[in-house]
Design a protein around this nucleic acid. Structure first.
Length: 512
DNA sequence: ATGTGC
């Protein structure tokens, strides 16, 4: 081992030790993980699905959506062990599922879907993630790419100025106080409609109507409130972005027409979440949930799976706080939408219509057909998108004949996709993938591309204009750090979870 | 993801 490798290894060990020390709550006795340290076997079910066999403490099997080309990526990290670990939790209904963009996450894998019985099952912050209701809003502009092309650099600059981006990005002009913030979290998109920041059509075209009714702002800590006060309408960092794109391929004319999307049309995609507020809610409740796991005798194979019975007092409090943070995220994306609308109106005299807005990180009560009967379930989606098929009553009336729009952002160099929820999505409790999925860790991307000017290369090679709040983030988000979104989307399409409607090519990107 | 790690 070289000196450099050894140093890196020591640094990793140190970081891991610090992380363990930081972990909140009491020491918890852990049960044996089903595949601890062993290679997780995968049994082929069909062209797009593999089974993780039930073993040890697992209460059900796992199902992983993948194909030969993405299988080697899965072996790279321990995400398949996490799929098996989730299957050990009480009250899980159906398999522990993984979408084709699965990768390692906190406790639950990112790209994981797990449904729980409301009476027998649990709710877990690890099944939602730190960025509660991270999600994507897709907007359609009444302008074509050729009309806008010359002014693109100015447009990206103007967007960069209009939407605060980066770690700690803040905005004061909404003038919220803690009570106002609580009202915002209670009413979600209704709050924005009441203040002229949204119209009724927006609310119809946001998942859940832009308001989780389980929200209980009283469960959000003062610290979380303080962090959230000045961050409504801000992008954040990491993989969050606001991206101007153009529809460059239409696969399904009927569905595209229903969504109001046509070839050459300009789009704006906003990817953000609940910022510091949601992060703080997650942090606050991890400690609670660890205590609850002990109190209710829930055997854990990983302390990051800490959870509480859905109907228990701590479970209800988490659901209340999580719902409040989710509503905050809906409003966050809406306020950025409002500012982008002002900008498009001033510059082009055109509108920006909400196509749809989906959650990526959420636990929600939903009714799904399971083994022949309709059941109310608490569905955890962590890095997964709801994908309801045609005819489902929760799909907005204008889209009901074609199915719910499923917005799948890819990397900032290649393309993103819009799909429609399809007939087999019942197999995944109405879910599909949420993105391309990382190929390189942030650290690996930095090592490989840290020396070059990624933004300049994207402009030269692909004509994409990138403005980032931080150069480091742009490097971490280099297209080569992601899988080909077309491949991931292909698995979801072939598996019948969601079907391709249009492809969107990026023109200009604002990054955190 | 995150006032990004003590």
């Amino acid at each position: 081992m070289s000196r450099k490798q050894r140093k890196r290894k020591e640094q990793r060990a140190k970081r891991a030790a610090r992380k363990t020390q930081r972990d909140p709550g009491p020491a918890v006795e852990l049960a044996a993980a089903p595949y601890a340290g062993r290679k997780v076997p995968l049994e082929r079910l069909d062209a797009t699905r593999f089974r993780v066999p039930q073993t040890g403490a697992m209460r059900t099997h796992g199902v992983v959506y993948a194909d030969e080309r993405t299988l080697p990526d899965l072996a790279e990290d321990r995400c398949l062990e996490q799929v098996a670990n989730v299957a050990t939790l009480p009250g899980i209904v159906g398999p522990s599922l993984a979408m084709p963009d699965i990768h390692w996450g906190y406790g639950f894998p990112i790209g994981g879907v797990a449904a729980f019985d409301p009476d027998e099952g649990v709710v877990s912050p690890g099944g939602v993630g730190y960025d509660i209701n991270c999600g994507v809003r897709l907007l359609a502009a009444e302008v074509t790419a050729s009309e806008l092309k010359r002014e693109l650099p100015e447009l990206v600059d103007a967007l960069f100025a209009a939407v605060p981006a980066g770690v700690g990005s803040a905005r004061r002009e909404l003038g919220l106080d803690p009570a106002g913030l609580q009202a915002l979290m209670r009413d979600g998109l209704g709050w924005a409609v009441g203040r002229g920041l949204a119209d009724e059509e927006d609310a119809e075209r946001v998942e859940e109507g832009g308001r989780l009714q389980t929200a209980d702002p009283a469960q959000v800590s003062e610290r979380a409130l303080a962090r959230g006060l000045n961050q409504v309408g801000t992008l954040g960092s990491g993989n969050h972005f606001a991206e101007v794109g153009v529809v460059d391929e239409v696969y399904d004319e009927v569905a595209a027409a229903a969504y109001g999307l046509r070839l050459g049309q300009v789009t704006l995609m906003i990817h953000s979440g609940s910022r510091g507020l949601g992060h703080q809610v997650c942090t606050d409740f991890l400690a609670d949930m660890l205590r609850a796991s002990e109190r209710y005798g829930i055997p854990l194979v990983d302390r990051q799976l800490c959870c509480a019975p859905v109907r228990s007092e701590p479970g209800q409090r988490y659901l209340g706080a999580m719902g409040a943070a989710a509503n905050y995220a809906f409003v966050n994306r809406q306020v950025m939408t409002h500012w982008a609308r002002q900008l498009f109106a001033e510059r082009y005299g055109c509108g920006l219509r909400t196509v749809y807005d989906v959650c990526h990180n959420i636990a929600k009560f939903e009714t799904h057909a399971f083994e022949g009967s309709e059941r109310e379930l608490l569905v955890h989606r962590k890095g997964a998108t709801r994908a309801l098929p045609a005819g489902h009553p929760l799909v907005p009336a204008a889209y009901r004949e074609v199915g719910q729009p499923v917005i799948i952002p890819g990397d900032m160099g290649r393309y993103s996709f819009v799909l429609r929820g399809a007939a087999n999505s019942g197999r995944s409790f109405g879910s599909a993938c949420h993105g391309a999925g990382r190929l390189l860790s942030r650290a690996a991307a930095k090592r490989r591309y840290g020396g070059e000017n990624v933004a300049a290369r994207l402009r030269k090679e692909r004509g994409v204009i990138v403005r980032g709040a931080s150069r480091a983030t742009v490097v971490e988000e280099v297209p080569e750090a992601y899988k080909d979104a077309a491949e991931v989307v292909g698995i979801v399409h072939d598996g019948g979870l969601a079907e391709r409607v249009v492809r969107i090519r990026p023109l200009g990107v604002v990054k955190g």
